[in-house]
Design a protein around this nucleic acid. Structure first.
Length: 280
DNA sequence: GCGCAGGTAATCT
DNA sequence: AGATTACCTGCG
């Protein structure tokens, strides 16, 4: 099916580091896995996109996943008074959206992300999915469930390249699987309480908690500070960023700055090409 | 071979 | 409280 989606940059969103299961498939097409489904999207230009699914599935799953019902133009307008640097960042990364991903997948993925490059994270997540996730198609696997990861042996997890994060992933999955911390329950909490709850998971500090809030719980006010953001803040806002001005949407701001900073440093903002199936 | 990659937790002062 | 350091693994 073909849809008109104004103000949506598919490649920018796919390469923005918020998700690890979306690849540049060539020919302006992106391939992704989410919510036990496989999807291809082709950008046709002029705001037109071709989705490899039915209209029902689009309305039911993907419209929400890509947060297409939120007015991002209105959010961007909030940042208009943010100075030249911000305007340049926005101009570069306009069309970016905050995906509504599965909270458990985000939690585990960002625990893995520490001290890893984006391609390395994608490798790990992909290996975990191939080994412990449900098969959803030709060479396509869903992200594993919490019980599946909780039951995995340390050796199996280690062979997916997790390194010292193995106990973090295993214990966090066990806590979710047992209901000790139920993700659907803490989803009801306010931002501060949710952040505190997430810190109780091993391997989760302020940064991973903020990423989980922003990408897994769609808390647009969460503001993850990684090395890129920190460098940008020190350089552009030595007196501190006037974050009250952007209250409630600092997370969107963070994504724009992140994309722009990586662009300035010469890093790709495009999603990596589909890699060869990881060896098991 | 060495340093670093979207950090965290343990161990200092 | 704030600063320092080890940590798996893969890649340049």
């Amino acid at each position: 099916m073909i849809v008109l989606i104004p103000n949506f940059d598919l490649m920018m969103t796919a390469g923005s580091g918020q998700c690890f299961r979306m690849w540049d498939h060539g020919d302006n097409t992106v391939r992704l896995f989410a919510f036990h489904r496989e999807l291809y999207i082709k950008s046709l230009g002029d705001g037109l996109f071709e989705f490899s699914c039915s209209e029902e599935e689009f309305a039911q799953i993907w419209q929400t996943y890509f947060d297409l019902e939120t007015d991002y133009q209105a959010i961007q307008d909030l940042f208009k008074s943010g100075g030249d640097y911000l305007q340049q960042a926005l101009a570069f990364s306009s069309g970016l959206r905050i995906l509504r991903q599965d909270a458990f997948e985000v939690l585990i993925s960002f625990i893995i992300s520490q001290r890893k490059s984006i391609p390395a994270i994608m490798d790990c997540v992909n290996r975990l999915s191939m080994r412990f996730g449900e098969r959803i198609g030709q060479n396509a696997y869903a992200f594993p469930s919490a019980p599946a990861l909780a039951l995995a042996s340390e050796q199996q997890l280690k062979s997916c390249g997790l390194g010292y994060r193995v106990p973090y992933v295993k214990e966090t999955s066990a806590m979710v699987a047992s209901g000790q911390i139920a993700l659907d329950e803490i989803a009801q909490l306010d931002d501060h309480a949710l952040h505190q709850s997430l810190l109780a998971f091993p391997g989760v500090g302020d940064k991973v908690a903020a990423c989980t809030m922003l990408f897994g719980f769609h808390r647009l006010g969460a503001f993850p500070v990684d090395v890129w953001i920190q460098r940008a803040l020190e350089r552009e806002y030595p007196e501190g960023i006037p974050s009250e001005q952007f209250d409630g949407f600092q997370g969107v701001l963070q994504q724009h700055i992140f994309c722009y900073e990586r662009h300035l440093s010469g890093r790709s903002i495009r999603p990596p090409c589909q890699i060869a199936p990881p060896s098991l």
